[in-house]
């Protein structure tokens, strides 16, 4: 009973802010208010009719998809190399690969801005994609390394012994067995990129508004509840996409 009550309190503490945002999306007032007054879908309509919001969403999706693809491939290869290789300085290389996790985003943003100005990548989409890949690759490495830790290398030897080439061994044996880690890393990378504000603020060119930037600026200049509406829509998308993925690949009971 006690345990149940504690759990309920923790859940409330974690979810209450989210629930407040969802509730304010339906208010009839011209500004977010809790509890909401009346009920309207007007703000959802307004978001879906707003070219800026749709454009921002599209940009964020493209950015997240492209950087996730890069991060997943690089991260998986790096994890394999770090887990299997026995070369000098392996620990140091691992530390360097994982370091973006520990850098403050603002430092990374500034550093990338200075560097990008030199090489002419500042304000470009490829530059943004590369920056997001830098941010998210370490998480893929972590996830894939975790799944490699439980992996029996004898299984790869068995494949080779039975006549499989390196390539076939990777695609038919190794990859299927580390897939939970790869998928988890990819999902994580996508969410991080889609959510990224600080580094994007530094590197975005004029007119390049990712969804977080768009939400951030519209909060600065207006106080209409469409931000609540778009947040509610994002929550819905994660419930529809993220939860099944989580249950399929990350839930320990299924592993």
């Amino acid at each position: 009973m006690m345990l149940w009550a504690v759990n309920a309190l923790i859940a409330l503490y974690l979810l209450a802010p989210v629930l407040v945002v969802v509730a304010t999306a339906f208010t009839t007032t011209g500004y977010p208010v809790f509890p909401p007054r009346g009920f309207t879908l007007r703000w959802f309509e307004s978001v879906l009719n707003s070219r800026e919001f749709l454009e921002a969403m599209r940009l964020s999706a493209v950015l997240a998809a492209a950087s996730t693809a890069i991060a997943t491939v690089l991260g998986t290869l790096a994890a394999l190399g770090l887990a299997r290789g026995s070369f000098r300085g392996r620990q140091a290389v691992a530390a360097i690969f994982l370091s973006p996790i520990f850098f403050p985003a603002i430092v990374l943003g500034l550093a990338l801005l200075i560097f990008y100005n030199r090489v002419g990548l500042a304000g470009t989409l490829p530059g943004m994609i590369a920056a997001h890949a830098v941010l998210t690759t370490p998480f893929v490495i972590r996830m894939v390394m975790a799944s490699l830790a439980e992996f029996d290398p004898a299984v790869e030897e068995a494949a080779e012994n039975l006549g499989a080439s390196r390539l076939r061994t990777f695609f038919q044996v190794t990859l299927p067995l580390i897939r939970p880690g790869v998928v988890a890393g990819a999902v994580f990378a996508f969410i991080l990129s889609f959510d990224e504000l600080v580094v994007s603020l530094f590197l975005a060119g004029p007119g390049m508004q990712t969804l977080p930037i768009r939400i951030f600026t519209s909060l600065e200049y207006s106080s209409r509840p469409d931000v609540s509406a778009i947040s509610t829509m994002l929550i819905l998308v994660w419930l529809l996409v993220g939860v099944p993925l989580y249950r399929r690949y990350l839930d320990i009971r299924h592993a």
Binding site: D152, A154, E157, A158, N161, L162, G163
Partner: peptide, 20 residues
């Protein structure tokens, strides 16, 4: 000769079956 071309079938201590 590489392991995958030796034609020497190995039975491993922990069987090393493909779990998937």
């Amino acid at each position: 000769v590489t392991a995958n071309r030796r034609d020497a079938g190995m039975v491993f201590q922990n069987y090393a079956l493909f779990p998937h």
